[in-house]
Simulated assay, not measured.
Amino acid sequence: MLLTCCYGVVDDLDDLMMITSVMERNGGVLRQRDHLASRLTFDRLVKSGSIARVLPGTFVSVDLLTNRHTRCAAALATYSGSVLWGTDAVAALSGTLAKSPFGPKDTVLLAHAQSRYPRPGVTWVRRSVPDAHRVRVNGLRSPSAAYLAVEASARDSGALIEKFLRAGKVRPVDLPAIVPLLIGSPGQDVRRRIVGASLDNPWSGGERTLQELLRRNRITGWVANAELVVGGQTCFPDILFEAARLVLEFDGYGVHSKPEVFESDRRRQNLLVIGGYHVLRYTWKQLTEQPDALIAQVRTMLARESTS
């Protein structure tokens, strides 16, 4: 993309090419203070409408004004020391940042160790993210997935931890070391409890509840979401008792009622049964309203296999 302006040919073509090159490397973002020697060219680009100011001293290509990745990059370029936070950080770490356009009333949520005044287009959270947990994702500064998920667990009951575990962004072993880094922030007791319960690798709230039910009833010998190869195909059973050849699956209606998931569940169950595994499936209602019946069924299956 070569920037042009309504003044015709720019006097210093080298300046224009240099600015264009910098903008491309920076994801469509330019800081005015980085181009003081090319002020005339810069001003002409602004007046021609090729670039637009979005934050103090920071401009982006008009073609990218609604690109969320570009707007996040502009905010980070404007405020050194800051990192993405909240939904923008989650989207960046998940690779989905550019999927939703940046609207006229949207803001970029940033975290910084010191208080900052509100600015149009930016919302602030005061948070000191340790250097060891600052990462770059497609050129954007962000907290690590483990740090962001554990911090959020005080408010979301572990939903972000489950999302990142499911996507392979974090491992259960990564989580405990984050808790001491958040001492002094609200919700530490909740974080400790959720991180402890996350060590068994739950990929959803229903799986977390199922695991807690098994632990409470002292049923051991299982692993969660471990890679299992059956018939040359790989699957990740919610709960696997390998010695008993028993699989437990949680079926949440919101996810498992989707046609593609419904079909996948049946293919996987058939694969497991043909491979010699027994499969028990449970719903949220069975987990929460009929836990004794669930545990009795699991114990029956485990006892049957231990005597066979």
Rank of each mutant, 00 (worst) to 15 (best):
Q188L: 15
E162L: 01
D174T: 05
G187H: 04
V137A: 09
S144V: 06
V179P: 03
D189I: 06
R166I: 00
R193K: 15
G158S: 11
S204A: 11
S153H: 03
S153W: 01
R141T: 07
L210N: 05
W203Y: 11
R171A: 12
F164E: 02
L199R: 15
Q188W: 06
P176S: 13
A197R: 15
L165K: 04
K169N: 03
V170M: 07
I183F: 09
V135A: 13
T209G: 02
R193H: 10
A145L: 04
G206D: 06
S144L: 10
T209S: 14
D156A: 10
G187A: 11
P172A: 08
S157H: 14
P202I: 11
S142V: 07
V195E: 08
V195W: 10
D200N: 13
L210T: 09
L199P: 05
G187C: 07
V179L: 10
S157G: 04
L175R: 08
R136A: 13
D156G: 09
P202W: 08
L182F: 03
S204N: 09
I161S: 04
V135W: 12
V190E: 15
A177F: 00
W203R: 07
L165T: 01
I183A: 14
R192G: 00
D189C: 04
A146K: 05
K169I: 00
P186W: 13
A159I: 01
N201V: 03
K163F: 01
A167Y: 03
L165G: 00
E151R: 14
Y147C: 00
E162S: 10
L199Y: 02
G196N: 14
R134T: 11
A149V: 02
V170S: 02
R136P: 01
L199G: 14
R141G: 12
V195N: 10
R171D: 10
R155F: 08
S142Y: 04
S157P: 00
S204Q: 06
A152K: 12
